[in-house]
């Protein structure tokens, strides 16, 4: 498969490779959950652009339908996880007051 022929450089694979490299560094180095999920969204955008530049249009449609489902599941899970962690910390800090 020759995609970038006829001399000029194509712009969509270049932007997609840039998004994937920046997103890989960003997901690892950030520590808050929402920052990591935002960077994961960034990375998946790069993946869809690279799939489209290979002319696999059906795979691109399936990826862009399935990917928000995964993001919504991750967001609901992270919200419940933060709530459980805060609730447990508040409960354990209230325990010595009850013990007096």
């Amino acid at each position: 498969m020759k995609v970038g022929e006829s001399g000029n450089v194509e712009l969509l694979p270049l932007v997609s490779i840039f998004c994937i490299v920046i997103g890989c560094i960003g997901v690892i180095l950030n520590t808050h959950y929402l920052d990591k999920i935002i960077m994961l969204e960034f990375l998946t955008g790069g993946l869809i652009g690279l799939i489209v530049s290979f002319y696999y249009l059906d795979v691109a449609i399936l990826t862009s339908i399935v990917e928000p489902v995964s993001t919504v599941i991750l967001l609901l899970g992270s919200l419940k996880y933060i709530y459980i962690k805060r609730s447990r910390r508040r409960y354990s800090s209230k325990l010595p007051v009850l013990g007096k």
């Binding site: 969204e41 955008g45 869809i48 449609i61 862009s64 928000p68 993001t71 919504v72």
Partner: peptide, 16 residues
């Protein structure tokens, strides 16, 4: 493909 990606990314950004 562009419409499907547009709808999916907008939905995901609203959820975030």
């Amino acid at each position: 493909v562009a419409a499907a990606y547009f709808i999916g990314s907008t939905l995901s950004s609203n959820a975030i």
